[in-house]
């Protein structure tokens, strides 16, 4: 796949900038009929300003749940969060997990500082409210504007995301639009309050291949234009390879490897990452048959294996170690961290 990156000044995406969001030892548990399930098991990562963090992992590994935790839109009835999510606003820092979900402060951040794009643009819009109604609402939740001014701003934002005939779109319902336009409307709604961080949870999964590329290009352009950080969640390593500056690879609620994209793609250290890369057609020129490169299936979150979560499928597992001890983080290159006994100095 072609790199979608738009050329930028080098200092604009420095690896050493202060992170916008610092996630530390985040745990997410669900109370279910089967008991308490650990969906995310103590992950740590940073989202850096003006950079794209690609979060990759198989379905069910806890990507969405992590994103929801940052937005504090977790299911409050069943979901318990632990660890810390620190957001930097200028000189201030703020632990989001210490805030009440429905508090004024949290609601200001949500949609104001952090925008969110969902996987399914069809169901993510109310079917009985017009697109305009819903975007105007987003504007007025964060800015003290009258209806006409808010509508003007909404129209400008729709134009900004390349929507043809935005005035007309304002009066339409989501189900009247094509998939690509719908996702554009979704993006416009997420950006209309000028967030510093945009979280996109599988933004292209529901789209066809051509539209996927268009939306990814659009996201990259918008990120540039608006100086945002982007957290791009996907199960498709190809998408990350094309768009991300930093990568976090997730497996069963853990981040097993993370670091700058270049470093990860050049010198991947974790057996899981290596297998993923091998199965990536465009990078290895293997054919589709390679998709089954990783044998076995992901265990259910309800019965997580002890030790390294990947040991049930890992070709290099060291018996007696990997199934007993959870590997800690090891720095293998600058900002490149891997959790695997193979690289553990002890």
């Amino acid at each position: 796949m072609r790199r979608i990156r738009v050329a930028r000044a080098a200092e604009k995406h420095g690896v050493n900038a202060d992170p916008i969001v610092q996630v530390r030892d985040l745990t997410v548990d669900f109370d279910t009929v089967e008991g308490r399930i650990r969906a995310v098991d103590g992950i740590s990562f940073d989202v850096l300003p003006r950079r794209t963090l690609g979060v990759v992992g198989e379905s069910g590994c806890g990507k969405s749940v992590t994103a929801q935790a940052i937005m504090r839109i977790e299911d409050e009835r069943t979901c318990r969060l632990g660890g810390s999510i620190v957001l930097r606003r200028g000189e201030d820092t703020l632990d989001l997990l210490g805030l009440d979900r429905d508090s004024t402060q949290m609601r200001e951040l949500r949609g104001g500082d952090i925008g969110f794009i969902f996987q399914e643009p069809m169901t993510s819009f109310s079917p009985v409210h017009t697109i305009g109604n819903q975007i105007i609402e987003a504007v007025r939740l964060h800015f003290n504007l009258g209806k006409p001014e808010a509508a003007q701003r909404a129209i400008e934002q729709l134009r900004d995301v390349g929507m043809p005939n935005p005035e007309h779109i304002m009066n339409q319902y989501a189900w009247e639009l094509s998939g690509g336009l719908r996702q554009r409307a979704m993006i416009a709604m997420a950006l209309v309050c000028g967030p510093r961080l945009l979280i996109a949870d599988e933004p292209t999964t529901a789209l066809d291949v051509t539209t996927q590329a268009q939306v990814l290009t659009l996201l990259a352009e918008l990120q540039d234009r608006h100086d945002m950080a982007l957290m791009l969640i996907t199960h498709d390593l190809g998408v990350v390879a094309a768009a991300a500056d930093d990568v976090a690879i997730m497996y069963l609620g853990c981040i097993v490897e993370r670091g700058p994209a270049a470093s990860i793609f050049r010198d991947s250290m974790h057996p899981y990452t290596q297998l993923l890369l091998e199965s990536l057609p465009s990078l290895t020129r293997r054919r589709r048959g390679a998709l089954k490169a990783i044998g076995g299936t992901v265990p259910r979150a309800a019965n997580r294996p002890g030790g390294c979560p990947f040991h049930t499928r890992c070709p290099s597992a060291i018996s007696g170690v990997c199934d007993r001890v959870l590997p800690g983080p090891t720095q293998v290159a600058e900002h490149h961290v891997v959790n695997c006994h193979l690289h553990d100095p002890q």
């Binding site: 990759v56 992992g57 198989e58 379905s59 069910g60 199960h235 498709d236 390593l237 190809g238 993923l276 199965s279 990536l280 057609p281 998709l291 089954k292 490169a293 990783i294 299936t297 992901v298 265990p299 259910r300 309800a302 019965n303």
Partner: peptide, 15 residues
């Protein structure tokens, strides 16, 4: 592409 289980994306239930 991340390999997926046979039925697309859902994990098969344990026993």
């Amino acid at each position: 592409m991340v390999p997926q289980t046979d039925n697309g994306n859902e994990m098969p239930p344990a026993t």
